[in-house]
Write a protein that binds this DNA or RNA. Structure first.
Length: 271
DNA sequence: TAGTATGTTGGCGC
DNA sequence: AGCGCCAACATACT
């Protein structure tokens, strides 16, 4: 269930596997994913010119100025295997075969993922991407901007961090972990955030993202909840466990309809 | 069995 | 307008 770090890892993987390679085969196994298979087929033979990430979107630029945009949503993954004729799992929604025998499969058992194909010049005009705020990693949020964003809203700071129109890329895990690092309670209304708190949050965003990317790059990417997954996070998914810093039990609450993990000892209200 | 799920959109009501 | 809440999407694991 990917957020910015997981999508970044996917982007790096697909870059490594695909850049300079020609896409020689495309099989859409779920028409709902990409109804216009014929359009994709017109790009067979095109080289992959580049792979980018914008917030939680993965952009595969094809030679010939078209871009394949992918959103993995909750359970999407792009995996590589060596070309084999025949069996593909039920979760496979798209198969791309490259000219060196590499096969890239889009696996997505919950089928929430989405793919778009459009001229590269129009990518950022897709309704889904047009409303995105600055990317959390590529265009770091300054304390000043965070104060500006937060000050206008009564919503909880965690909900604000997750609002893709304000900052692109942060999801439920990132928001919880960043607020834990910053020592700020997730329910703190934006307009009650102190300058110190805003500065602490802004200072933790990029370091957390870089840590998460590096940490999860060390092994095969397995989402929490999948068999064999290892929870590398400090508070997320750890209700009842002792905080490694203060020893108090991690609590779970609900904010904006999402499970929210925090440490009552380390994240105390100010002012 | 009920609860939970790292995402996003759209609707309803206050 | 802003905000909270809920359902929908579809499936698996505990």
């Amino acid at each position: 269930m990917p957020e910015l770090p997981e999508v970044e890892i996917h982007a790096r993987n697909v870059h490594e596997w695909g850049v300079g390679r020609r896409i020689m085969g495309a099989e859409v196994r779920d028409p709902k994913l990409l109804p216009d298979l014929a359009e994709l087929r017109t790009h067979l033979g095109a080289r992959v010119a580049g792979v980018r990430r914008q917030a939680k979107y993965l952009l595969v630029d094809l030679e010939g100025v078209h871009t394949l945009t992918v959103h993995l949503r909750m359970t999407g993954k792009l995996v590589r295997d060596v070309y084999t004729a025949g069996e593909v799992s039920k979760a496979t929604r798209l198969v791309l075969d490259l000219d060196d025998g590499t096969r890239i499969r889009f696996e997505d058992f919950r089928r929430f993922g989405r793919v778009w194909l459009c001229p590269s010049s129009e990518v950022m005009r897709l309704p889904e991407l047009a409303g995105l705020g600055p990317d959390a990693l590529l265009e770091p949020t300054s304390p000043e901007r965070l104060i500006q964003i937060a000050g206008r809203s009564r919503r909880g700071i965690k909900v604000l961090l997750m609002d893709q129109a304000l900052i692109g890329g942060l999801g439920n895990i990132c928001a919880a972990e960043i607020l834990y690092r910053a020592g700020v309670p997730p329910e703190t209304p934006g307009n009650q955030l102190t300058g110190r708190q805003a500065a602490a949050i802004a200072a933790e965003i990029v370091p957390f993202l870089e840590w998460s990317i590096a940490e999860q790059s060390r092994r095969e990417l397995i989402y929490l909840g999948e068999p064999g997954a290892e929870n590398v996070f400090t508070v997320y998914g750890r209700r009842g466990e002792p905080c490694p810093r203060c020893g108090e039990a991690i609590i779970r609450s609900v904010l904006g309809g999402r499970g929210t993990y925090s440490c009552p000892g380390c994240q105390k209200a100010e002012g």
